[in-house]
Design a protein around this nucleic acid. Structure first.
Lengths: 333, 333
DNA sequence: CTGAAAGCGCTTACAG
DNA sequence: CTGAAAGCGCTTACAG
């Protein structure tokens, strides 16, 4: 008797299944006594309606797929938390999947949740095009991209952050501390439009504030070694103030610098994207450009809910980044 | 046409629904040509079977509920990742929920996933007793507790870690560095059997290694102030070596100490439970007692899968903690 | 106000 | 080898 059915309730209450259904859903008119006895039976049996069966008639499963690259990454954990929380409050259960930055895992997750007849999905997509992504889209299910978009998929609204405001403030702060040159480490930008967007925003703003010839930009790949060599080249060019577009690079760089005996906030000034817990806990605390990830998550979920209700379509949104100055940007020498 | 049904496939292939079903599931005998045409139709329509409908007959939804207190906590994020990953590889979709350390949220999540007819659940439980937990259990659905157990719920197997080995090694390391006294900050132990278990293990081992009169133990509540005052009292008792049973306390303590100008690894020696990323990234790196959380998650998921297959029942497992010495334990003065 | 019936998308004996 | 029918747990017109 793993699950109690509506029939059990009907039997217990001595009435028909349809009446129980009506009593439970408040449709049509039912006598107070009938209602009472239904409630009692539900109580006694701990009846919980099978939403799968309900779904087969209503075609709403109250179920959403959420795909993030890796919840072990603090940024995506915050994002997933905010999304799941918002969705749950609206009565939705969230299937979670991690793509580990791999297109094939992403596709197999999407296929799986599609077979569960999700009402839609919220996705931090991988790479550009993907069969399953395309399938999801042609099914005209509500889909929202969050944090970044996928190329080759049309008409999916995106909730991400606008890098400009935060970068502008960070650059001004660096300039105010007396630096003449500024460097930017943009991360593994190859198939990440958001990282590319940050780099463009940086180039544009930095050239205006520092002058083109004082601006240095390099990208890294996923491995530790590339970060080390970028760092070395930057220092050799006389760059003492760095902005990291990709927080894992910043974390690597900080430990590399510490090992090398260089003091952050004195010998090197650093600003990183993403207001991770770790940046507040280490000493000196790291100045950051915050994407306000909770806000992005919440808005992504709300946009999704509106789409499910048919309220809006394809209205992408941007959440402004903000700069949070801390001790990792020191006086230039 | 949000979803393609088996009927669409049958129509396209010009045969009956039942034959399509049989072809797809490889039951009974079907002619090669029929099979071909079914496959072609499936391909053309991108048909994905509705597993909810399948589930209504087979009573297996290939769906699991996973409840953790908070995925924003690195420890639970690692745990959730390992569990979700293992489950997904076995063909299960995972509903995730966060209880935010609240019994009522936990209960409402459990009720929600029960209405989705999950095949079972993997849970990091809150508090002692809970209606929904009890309900889950009486439904005889496969349930596994991970990381900690809930009192008042019988017969649910638990996969957690055995604190003894790690604590023993940590204590020996502290002793080897010349300390005569040792302190233990046990966290908010009130309704956490695992934190209690750690404290017992510590008391037992520390008394044997250091002698009862040189062992200091205090617990904290969830707020920052209690951690500060515990820290102060410990230092006043002349305790320079501390083990933290609850990693958030350790993180708080480290930042408190740093603000106060005390050097970790010199003025104070510290060991914390949980091998969090942050403990490897800050300087000095923090010595930890690792619970091997990935291993716990993987084993929890595997135990669950065995239970679903009816292979075993209620076989709790313990994963040994290991001690990882780093620079935060220095020479006593 | 209440019940019998049809149907959601599947699968599985049961005939043929 | 294939199709018609029943049934999984629900909801919703349709009668009464």
């Amino acid at each position: 008797m793993a699950y109690v059915t509506i029939r059990d309730v009907a039997q217990r209450a001595g009435i028909s299944v349809s009446t129980v259904s009506r009593a439970l859903n408040g449709r049509g008119r039912i006598s107070p006594e009938t209602k009472k006895s239904v409630e009692r039976a539900v109580e006694e049996l701990n009846y919980i309606p099978d939403s799968r069966a309900q779904a087969m008639r209503s075609s709403k499963t109250k179920t959403v797929g959420l795909l993030v690259p890796d919840i072990r990454n603090g940024y995506f954990a915050d994002l997933a938390y905010a999304i799941q929380d918002t969705l749950f409050k609206a009565g939705y259960c969230t299937f979670i999947g991690t793509s580990s930055e791999s297109v094939s895992l992403q596709d197999s997750f999407i296929t799986s949740i599609l077979s569960q007849h999700i009402d839609g999905a919220i996705i931090v997509p991988q790479g550009e095009y993907s069969d399953a992504l395309h399938l999801l889209n042609t099914r005209k299910l509500p889909v929202v991209f969050v944090d970044r978009t996928a190329q080759g998929v049309e008409g999916v609204p995106l909730v991400d952050s606008d890098p400009m405001p935060g970068i502008r403030e960070a650059l001004n702060d660096i300039k105010d501390h007396g630096f003449a040159k500024v460097g930017y480490v943009s991360g593994p930008i190859l198939d990440s439009p958001s990282l590319q967007g940050r780099e463009y925003a940086f180039r544009d703003l930095a050239a205006r504030i520092f002058g083109e010839e004082h601006v240095f930009v390099e990208s890294t790949s996923f491995n530790q070694a590339s970060c080390a060599s970028v760092l070395k080249r930057m220092r050799q060019s006389g760059v003492d103030a760095l902005i990291f577009g990709y927080s894992p690079d910043a974390i690597r760089a900080i430990s590399l610098l510490t090992y090398a005996g260089e003091q952050v906030g004195k010998d090197v000034s650093i600003v990183s994207f993403d207001d991770l817990e770790i940046f507040r806990l280490i000493s000196p605390q790291i100045s950051v450009i915050s994407q306000q990830v909770q806000e992005i998550g919440r808005r992504g979920a709300e946009l999704f809910l509106d789409m499910v209700d048919g309220k809006r379509q394809s209205q992408s949104q941007r959440v402004e980044t903000i700069y949070i100055p801390r001790a990792s940007v020191g006086q230039a020498r």
